[in-house]
Amino acid sequence: MQSVKPEIDGETGDWPAGTRPSRRIVLPRFLRRPARILSRLDLRMPGHVGTKSLALFFAATAVTGMLAGGHTMTVVSAFTAWSGLAIDEVEISGQSETSEIDVLEAMAMGEYPSIVTFDAITARERVEKLPWVKRVTIRKLYPDTLQVAISERQPFAIWQHDGAVVLITKDGKVISDHVDARYKNLPMVVGVDADKRADEFVTLLKEFPTFAPRVTAGVLVSGRRWNVVLRNGVEIMLPEEDPASALIQAVALDDGHGILSREIAAVDLRLPSRLVFRLTEKGYEAREALLKARKKNGSNT
Rank of each mutant, 00 (worst) to 15 (best):
W226A: 04
N227P: 00
V228Y: 02
V228M: 06
V228L: 02
V229N: 08
V229W: 02
V229C: 04
V229M: 09
V229R: 14
L230S: 12
L230V: 08
R231T: 15
R231H: 14
R231F: 05
N232C: 07
G233P: 04
G233S: 06
V234I: 12
V234Q: 06
E235M: 03
E235Y: 01
I236N: 02
I236W: 05
I236P: 00
M237N: 13
M237K: 15
M237S: 01
L238C: 09
L238G: 00
P239C: 09
E240T: 11
E240N: 10
D242C: 13
D242I: 09
D242Y: 11
P243I: 07
P243N: 00
P243R: 05
A244S: 14
S245C: 02
A246P: 04
A246Y: 01
L247G: 11
L247Y: 01
A250P: 08
A250W: 00
V251Q: 03
A252D: 13
A252K: 11
L253T: 14
L253N: 13
D254S: 05
D254H: 11
D254L: 10
D254A: 01
D254T: 11
D255H: 03
D255M: 13
H257G: 15
H257R: 08
H257Q: 10
G258H: 00
I259H: 00
L260Y: 10
S261D: 15
S261Q: 08
E263P: 10
I264S: 05
I264K: 00
I264M: 13
A265F: 03
A265C: 12
V267N: 10
V267D: 12
V267C: 02
D268Y: 03
D268H: 07
L269T: 05
L269M: 06
L269F: 09
L269S: 01
L271I: 09
L271Q: 10
L271M: 12
L271S: 14
P272C: 04
P272K: 05
S273E: 15
S273L: 06
S273T: 08
R274F: 01
R274D: 07
L275W: 14
V276F: 14
V276Y: 08
F277S: 04
R278E: 14
R278Q: 12
R278N: 10
